[in-house]
Design a protein around this nucleic acid. Sequence first.
DNA 1: TTATTTGTTCATTTTTATTTGAACAATGTT
DNA 2: AACATTGTTCAAATAAAAATGAACAAATAA
Lengths: 170, 170
Amino acid sequence: MFESKETVTDATEKNAAVVNVELELMVRDFFADAVKVLGLPKSVGEIYGSLFISKEPLSLDDLVERLGMSKGSGSQGLKMLRTLGAVSEVEGIEGRKVFYEADVELKSLVGGFIREEIRPHLSSAKVKIGRMEASNLNGDEHYAERINKLDNWRKRSGLLLPILQKILGK
Amino acid sequence: MFESKETVTDATEKNAAVVNVELELMVRDFFADAVKVLGLPKSVGEIYGSLFISKEPLSLDDLVERLGMSKGSGSQGLKMLRTLGAVSEVEGIEGRKVFYEADVELKSLVGGFIREEIRPHLSSAKVKIGRMEASNLNGDEHYAERINKLDNWRKRSGLLLPILQKILGK
DNA sequence: TTATTTGTTCATTTTTATTTGAACAATGTT
DNA sequence: AACATTGTTCAAATAAAAATGAACAAATAA
């Protein structure tokens, strides 16, 4: 008996691509889970995972078809990934349809996540801590100590980010 | 006109505690928001925030009353915080009611989070990546390269954790 | 023993987050 | 022009996560 988990999708002379469907599925699901840790929707992980493992750039329509998701979700997911700098448009492909590929450098992924998701939180934390200090007008010691601790956490987190990028970035 | 944002709750001779209600609310809300970044429920943040800023240890009943949440939520929230090592029972208080206080050392908070939330994910990632390698039996180059990249990310994240603890831990 | 206090568990309800799909805009094609 | 293709937006539907509250257990007090 002949067993195969592989399929030839594009079998023109020039451009034969053997696709391991099983593997591509595993990778897609891997990212679907992974992004949830970061607080992003599953669909975003599925899209990124598909692009990460794909041998070719994919269009919105390709993704929507493969993932069986609505065009709306696909469009929104790609938008989020573009904002994070996790995917980019591939230049020079005929027609007006846009094709995407995954940015696979951890450096830029981490950078994008820090810029879009972490920094804004640290900024708003700074403002809020300022208000706490203002509220402790009479300088109660216990409160002052706690607010100060909080502010130290914030400062240290801020210092951490560049280091994080350095370690994770290539 | 007499304006005050403060209230004396415990005005016995020995143990007068002036409580800044406004400030305590700010801190509670601060943590309610903050924990969402970590993927924990708001109620957990409210509980931790209350304990973090409180001048005294609080019991489950205290928390449930202040936060206007159900006993069920309070119990579950405290359980999670105990598991993370973010709160601890205060020894030597009369009666069978248990009182809690916040662990305010960033070091142990980060440690608990890494142990409970990060490490398990990295472990399961390792297993999954192993399966991906197994699926790429015929050694397709493109796939091998991507799987390898993924595994590098995993390894680097593992290396990062102790560094993270060192920087954030006092 | 019976009642009270304290706390947990978990099925149900409520809230929040995500996805869908139809309407729309923009651009290219016939 | 009329039509087809591609993609976005957003109100509504759906799915997922969290909170509730009643039932229960354990421990103490009366």
